[in-house]
Amino acid sequence: MKVLVTGAAGFIGSHLCEELLLSKDVEKLIGVDFFIGPTPAGMKKDNLFQLLEHPKFEFIRNNLLTMPLDDLIAGTDVVYHLAAIPGVRSSWGYDFKHYVDHNILATQRLLEACKNKSLKKFIYASTSSIYGEKHGSVSEDQLPEPLSPYGITKLSGEHLCRVYEKYFGLPLVILRYFTVYGPRQRPDMAFHRFIRQFIKNEPVTIFGDGKQTRDFTFINDCRRATASVLINDRAVGQTINIGGKERASVLEVLDVLEEISGIKAKRIFFDQPAGEPKHTWASISKAKELLDYNPVTGLKEGLKQEYLYLLNFYRDDKK
């Protein structure tokens, strides 16, 4: 089976590629990335380090907005579309144009290239940001009400995928990720930022009162769930939440990091930014049923793994 992963050098994308290469069903894996977004190019190169040594992996550094796609898609059995500009806070203002370009227009261009091909699956990586502010556990059939321009672009991508499914028979699967964390997490994300501040003995910056809660999903659970879609025909046509084993508040996360690091951090609070919900909580009953998904990594263990990874990453004070 030939598989294409867009966004292959990113946080989730690089982990997904490693997981797919463990599968006997994958004969060839093509990874595409243009090194855009908040993750520095050097970090993305590090993410690819092990992948580039694998004989079944080929990497292409190019832009989905401009690169020729017909040859890329030819002979491909499964497409995982993870490439996007992420982040809620930076999606306001002028930078929204980049979100439209890379989250909507690039998705439409890829769908056009795939529409008349004999794909087995097209897997679109979406986000809990499409739900907006909800109360209690959120199931996939709840009305999307995104609070940010970023969430709107990802929901637009979902709608585009559904249109191509309806009129061209695209074998579509939509996965909605809930706050994925762990080694290689983007530097703009809260856990990475907190840990970097711990390591550098800087005050920890908290947006809002710190009582906001998230459904945190460890990367190893996320990657296994995502890779399992590869040969799961029951998933076709479905939208599926990928959530974690544990929910917690930001303040509770900081308590755990203080325990792991042995450092008592100074906490500085800033206003809650626009576009971020107070709470997220995924219903994962559908993932359990269709994907046999069962997240196994608790928050403390996951945070410890990310802390140790970043401790090594930032051992050079120049970073």
Rank of each mutant, 00 (worst) to 15 (best):
L52P: 06
I104A: 11
E112K: 04
L72G: 04
I30T: 15
L4K: 03
F59A: 00
L72M: 15
I104S: 02
L82H: 10
V78A: 02
D33E: 08
S23P: 05
T6Q: 05
Q50D: 15
D77H: 12
V79K: 09
E58V: 06
Y99L: 02
H54V: 04
E53G: 14
N63I: 04
E27V: 11
A106R: 05
E18F: 04
R89H: 14
A41M: 13
T39F: 06
L22Y: 11
S90M: 12
D95V: 00
P55W: 11
Y99N: 02
Y94F: 15
A8Q: 10
G37V: 02
L4M: 10
Y94S: 13
E58A: 09
I12K: 04
G10L: 03
R61Y: 09
G31Y: 00
L111R: 03
S23K: 12
A8V: 10
G13H: 02
D95L: 06
G13W: 06
L48E: 08
H81T: 09
T39V: 11
I85L: 11
I12A: 02
L29M: 04
R61A: 06
G37M: 05
L52H: 12
I104T: 08
F11M: 02
D25P: 02
Y99K: 00
V5E: 07
V5L: 12
V32F: 01
I85W: 10
Y99H: 07
L111P: 00
H54E: 12
S90N: 12
P38N: 07
Q50V: 14
I73K: 03
L110Y: 06
V100L: 13
K44F: 11
L72R: 05
V32I: 14
E53L: 15
E19S: 06
S91G: 11
S91T: 09
P38G: 01
V26T: 05
L69G: 03
G42R: 13
H15P: 07
N62T: 13
D71E: 15
A106G: 03
Y99T: 05
D46K: 12
G75W: 06
F35T: 00
N47R: 08
E112T: 12
V78E: 03
L111N: 07
L64R: 04
P68C: 15
D71I: 10
S91F: 09
A106T: 03
P38M: 02
F34V: 05
H81Q: 12
D25T: 04
G37H: 01
K28N: 12
G75V: 01
P55T: 00
F35R: 08
G42Q: 12
